[in-house]
Design a binder for these strands. Structure first.
Lengths: 244, 244, 244, 244
DNA sequence: GATGAATGAGATTTCATTCAT
DNA sequence: TATGAATGAAATCTCATTCAT
């Protein structure tokens, strides 16, 4: 009944929806003027830890990952992890958020900088994203987020808002433009977007989960070509010509 | 049968490839002659436990799932779980295998019993599987398998062989037939199969991971319609007519 | 930012003042009909653990006490402690509350059952409480509560309400009656009560903290006699006769 | 000098009894010749650290006090603490010894410099000590010493010798003189001394532990007045006059 | 002398598994 | 067969102490 004074001030933040990406290195290590070997090492720490953590979390999942392993892989002691991340959860979230952020930014710039026909744009997006997602350490992120969505709802929300939603929005605009210009036939855009995105997620999951189980490992190039080919064929007006 | 990677020693249990679905009711507790209420209850035990376990594993993942919770949900004591399943891993594997088996059988019978045009068959397969996969407890299985593929390679292998491979094989045959009959255009079948299957996985993942995070939850019917529509449009010979 | 779902439902209760004593054995172990050796052992567990914990907490203080030691002394494993008490804090609080409760009840009954002159009553109270408090395991309780008052404010409050306040109230009534009857002189009752109670606390502290450091250990009987003598002399009307 | 009981090996450091107050400014950092602002700061360090440490130790107890907090409060880095004090134990002991020493000296001078009637002397001692002890940072010392007497037996011994014993000795002499002069009645002096000192300890404990839990906080002046009044009434020969 | 990042021993706590009943 | 109390290995996390700068 009686409770001790809260030793740690462990505040649990209330769920905030629609969290927008605004990330940087958690323990903001000031840009010292002189760059001693030690200081250089120190500034690299968060990144080193995140890289190690991503590996371990990706391989084992959140719960089965041991901080011992992460520390060993990062070349630091267990205690050091806690210098940079409040606890295991915070580390996990940082892994997802900080690894995701740059990639999303890159993707967004890529799409925005481009101005071709909807078909070409779609082809380019699918191809680029497939290349991105075929990198194991990137592919691991959706796997982890989906696996832990029940235990880390905020993280799932974050992923949903920053990847799924933004992705569907971009794709929706491209398809919509194609429909307007008459290049594409009239389709149920919100659903079509999901259907056409699906192979990207599939690719990611395959790479992380089944690659080693298939006799003939998935050929990313060929897969992506088929994806683009089928997507464009699916969207194009029936009387119009050829395929990619 | 399938063994998780031993966390301590790190060794992977002897990989056995191409395991075919065989196990069904793991702890074959014989059909006693007299059927008292209690005995009936007893025979129902394994199924009750599996159902409870699926719920918990799906919500939390393998590692974070507590056998306490499973036992409570199944309405038995913790010790009783061990009467039916050797340990937590065995229970997890049983959940996947026993829940998967019947569904795969059903799907197979369904496809084999059908004899329409490739287009119609494809439409039917996609629609039926979408309905199946939209059930949360079914959708949870691929999620769990993918999440734990690193820790349970044999289980991933099992899933790959019995779901992915069989699924691609069936789909491959349907598409192949369509190409032969001239109903479909010539495509890279192995890749096309994966691309066209992807929305099914996508649907499963969405249902288990993001459903609660989306403002407008996914409309399975509309999604499936779009899937069929786009798939057929993508495969059909360009000069030929309409969509579903 | 994103927070994982609370795994343990670690609710921190808001501070409730004036908590009244209403204690029993935390994990209410039902009174089974048959009393097997094991069951008997099990019912004894909470008491065994509390006794061990009191010893260790008294000797080391809350923070320095190791649950290893408590478990060893109680003859159980570390895990077993958690079967009966949520965590270290809960165990500490249980020690104080459950050890205190019976003693307070006993004291109260003792005082209420008595009906002599205020002088006699006072003498009896002081003598009895001194005897009680001279028991090391009882004396340890105020020591612990005072030491941890900053870390366990609710517990300090509990002690204050149930020991200090009730004690002062009882004493206040006795002295008040003495003043009314003219047996005692007129004094500042609220302050006098504290002054006259003080030697009891002093005795407790001495026993737990300094006993081993004094060449001539405190003679409880003589101390108590002096306490009673001086207290009565201090209260009695000047023209009236002396005390023992 | 005083050593805590080694938690691991359990051995008590060589008990040295009757240690007399000697240590004062533990790390005698010489009085540098030039007195720059920085140097002055440096010389003030030990005192600043001790003040901060007293605060933290008093609030949390020895074990729960974090050197991080002490360092932060003292405005130095954690490493700096170790420049002045060998370790946490040494710091704790320094806090008690250095804070106690000056106060004891002051009390002693006060008593020795006075030469009135035993009654007046007693009244003065009680009043002065009450004032002293009502200061929270002074009151915290006995609380800490008593709380940690099991872990720091040498420190308890030190306190016993330098405070308790000296206090009882002084008081004993005053009362003895009063008995000789016939001003006081004949009492069991060694016990009476303890009984009459007790309210001082009580005051200290109350201030640190229960003050915040009482609805009407203790009025030090009134309490002290009652203490003196009752003590003198208790000692004075019965046929003799007035009260405070 | 002063710093504070890094360490790692050690504490608490959890939970799959066992086993007496 | 069923139970659930007990276990203890293993994980997370803390914090006094060190030491390169």
């Amino acid at each position: 009944m009686a409770r001790a004074v809260d030793v740690k001030s462990g505040r649990k933040s209330g769920a905030r929806r629609e969290q927008r990406l605004e990330l940087r290195h958690a323990p903001q290590i000031g840009s010292r003027h002189q760059q001693s070997a030690r200081a250089r090492r120190k500034e690299a720490r968060p990144a080193e830890i995140l890289a190690a953590a991503l590996d371990i979390f990706a391989a084992r999942g959140f719960a089965a990952a041991k901080l011992d392993e992460v520390a060993a892989k990062a070349g630091v002691s267990k205690g050091t992890l806690y210098l940079y991340y409040r606890n295991k959860e915070a580390l996990f979230e940082a892994v997802v958020r900080e690894k995701l952020g740059p990639e999303i930014d890159r993707m967004e710039r890529m799409v925005e900088g481009y101005s071709g026909s909807p078909s070409d744009l779609l082809a380019m997006i699918f191809t680029q994203v497939a290349t991105l997602v075929s990198r194991k350490e990137i592919a691991a992120i959706p796997k982890m987020v989906i696996a832990e969505s029940g235990n880390f709802p905020d993280l799932a929300q974050f992923y949903f808002d920053n990847v799924i939603k933004r992705g569907t929005s971009i794709l929706g605009r491209v398809i919509g433009r194609g429909v307007e210009t008459g290049e594409f036939r009239v389709v149920d855009v919100p659903q079509a977007v999901k259907v056409l995105m699906a192979p990207i997620l599939f690719l990611a999951q395959w790479r992380t989960a089944f690659e080693i189980h298939d006799d003939a490992p998935l050929d990313v190039k060929a897969f992506s070509r088929a994806h683009v080919d089928l997507a464009l064929a699916a969207l194009r007006r029936p009387n119009e010509g050829e395929a990619a």
